[in-house]
Every structure is written in structure tokens, then in C-alpha cells.
Amino acid sequence: MTNWLSVQRGDAPLILTFPHVGADLADVAGDFRSDWLARRDADWWVDDLYAFAGEMGATMIRTAISRSVIDLNRDPSGASLYPGQATTELCPTTTFDGDPLYAGAHPDAAEIARRRANWFDPYHAALAAEIARLRARHPHIVLYDAHSIRSHVPRLFDGELPQFNIGTNGGASCDPALEAAVATLCAASGHSHVVNGRFRGGWTTRHHGRPDRGVHAIQMELAMRGYLTEPARPDPANWPAPIHPDPAILPTLRRVIAACIDFAKGRS
């Protein structure tokens, strides 16, 4: 563990990653025009929501670095993962709502390279090391990339986002049986869900998911209404809202995580 990267090791054939739960603006805090805006789009409390998975033997990888400093789930080349759709960059220059993050100049190529070397590369090296460690013990493992987002972000998607957004890069990042198992549980929950909709999986699932090599990667993007009370419009006085003491979606998430472990063991 470093002061910004935490790896909680388990022995089950499952890794949970949390690339966007951090709020640390590191050594570039002074460059942002608003600390609050630079932290607003974090995946608030998602690592707390999934804390139970550690008790089930999952490996948990978290970062404290804010996605506004560098987004650990973007293509490091800078290429868009969603061509033709609104999104944010490797080193974002706007919030999800399109608000500018910088009062002055945006990060230039040298600064982006520095941030990548400091945070992006070590994060993915740590993830690759855990994949290798668990693959040495298990013929198949599941990599579960955990995310959340506000239910309404008009710049990114129309209307209300489904509660459970499952991404497998169009089925390329995991075995179809895993995708089907997770989708079936989400459908049975009574909450809305979609597979490979607006969020089809970011760099983590697309880069590390190699089902032909026993690494089955899936992204879960949760609408935040399932575990906290979302205000109509977030502001510094009401955001982030606290996590609900008994989230409505927690029983389904427990079943989903158990199914991921069962899938990997069944393939073993």
C-alpha cells in the first residue's frame, strides 16, 4: 500500500477495482478552479458499498487519487472509448456536466505524461500483478470494475440511467455465461438494468479482460439512487450525500459478487 493506492489481497478468484472513489487532488489541487467541482464526479462510497466482498475473499484495489487528476479507466493514449459520444479525457478538462475544471491552461502533453507515470501506470501495474498472482492459483478469475454515477447527467445520457449498467465491451471481455449470470440477477432484482448500453466498459475491462487467458472482466456502473439519496441538483451543501444505512440494491450486489466467484470456480 502507498499513500494513494491500496491493495487488499484475498484468495478467491475475484478482483474488485475502484478507480474513481478517490478525492485527493494531489500536487495539482491549485490548478483547479474549484476543489468541489474537481471532486464532484467521484464514485462516492462505492468501495464502502462493496466492503462485504473482502469478507468473501475478493482482492480489492482502491485509489485515493481523484479522477479529475487522471482517470485511471481511460485509454492512456488519449483515444476516446466512446467515439462520437460526450465523455471526459484521460486528464479531464471538464466535469460530467461540462463545467470547466481549470481556470487557466489545461494540462499539456508533458504534464499528462507525468501524471500517467505517477498514478496511471503504477495502478495498472498493481492490477496486473494481482491478476498474475490469482491466475497462478486459479485457472479462471473474474475482474469486476466497480463504478457509480448520478442517475441524471444530461450531457452524457438521456433521461434516467438504469440502476444496473453492465459492461463487457460487447461481450469481448468475459465469457457469455458470466455476462448472462450477472444480467439475470439484475433483472430479477426488480430494478432496471442494461447490458452494454451507455457504459460498455472502460480501459480496465477492455485492456485486462482476456477470457481466452482465464481473465473475465466485467464493469458495473450503478446509478447512485440505489444507495444514497440524490439531490435534484448537487451543490457544496448537499453533495456528496451520505450512503444509505441499508441500500436497496445491496442484496442484489451480494448475489452478483457470489455469482462471479461461483462462475470462476465453476470454470476451474
Rank of each mutant, 00 (worst) to 15 (best):
W4Q: 06
L5S: 06
S6H: 13
V7K: 11
V7S: 07
G10N: 13
A12G: 13
L14H: 12
L14D: 15
I15K: 08
F18S: 04
P19A: 02
V21K: 12
D24K: 03
A26G: 08
V28L: 09
V28I: 10
A29S: 14
S34T: 04
D35I: 10
W36F: 15
W36G: 04
R39D: 01
A42Y: 12
V46K: 10
L49G: 05
F52C: 01
G54H: 15
M56E: 15
G57N: 14
G57F: 15
A58M: 04
A58L: 06
A58D: 12
R62V: 01
R62P: 09
A64C: 09
S66F: 12
R67T: 02
S68T: 02
D71V: 00
L72Q: 08
N73A: 01
R74Q: 04
P76G: 03
S77V: 00
S80R: 03
Y82K: 04
P83V: 00
Q85L: 12
A86T: 06
T87G: 13
T87Q: 10
T88S: 03
T95V: 01
D99R: 08
A103G: 15
G104I: 02
G104P: 15
H106M: 12
P107I: 00
P107F: 00
D108A: 06
I112H: 07
I112V: 14
R115C: 10
A117W: 08
N118A: 15
P122F: 05
A126G: 14
A129Q: 12
E130N: 09
E130D: 09
R137G: 08
H138W: 14
Y144I: 00
Y144T: 00
Y144V: 01
D145E: 06
A146K: 09
S148V: 04
S151C: 08
H152M: 07
H152K: 11
V153Y: 11
V153P: 15
P154A: 00
R155K: 14
D158A: 10
D158I: 03
G159W: 11
G159A: 04
E160L: 06
P162Y: 06
F164E: 05
T168R: 04
N169Q: 10
C174P: 13
D175F: 11
P176N: 01
P176I: 01
A180R: 10
A181P: 11
A181Y: 09
T184A: 14
L185M: 09
A187K: 12
A188K: 11
G190W: 15
S192Y: 13
S192G: 15
V195W: 14
N196I: 02
G201E: 13
H207Y: 15
G209M: 04
G214L: 13
G214W: 14
M220G: 05
E221M: 10
A223N: 11
R225F: 09
G226N: 05
G226E: 03
P231F: 07
D235M: 06
D235N: 12
P236R: 00
N238P: 07
W239V: 00
W239Q: 00
I243N: 03
I243C: 03
H244Q: 06
P245M: 01
P245I: 00
P247R: 02
A248H: 09
L253C: 01
V256L: 07
A258V: 02
A258N: 07
C260H: 05
I261P: 11
F263D: 09
A264M: 08
A264K: 01
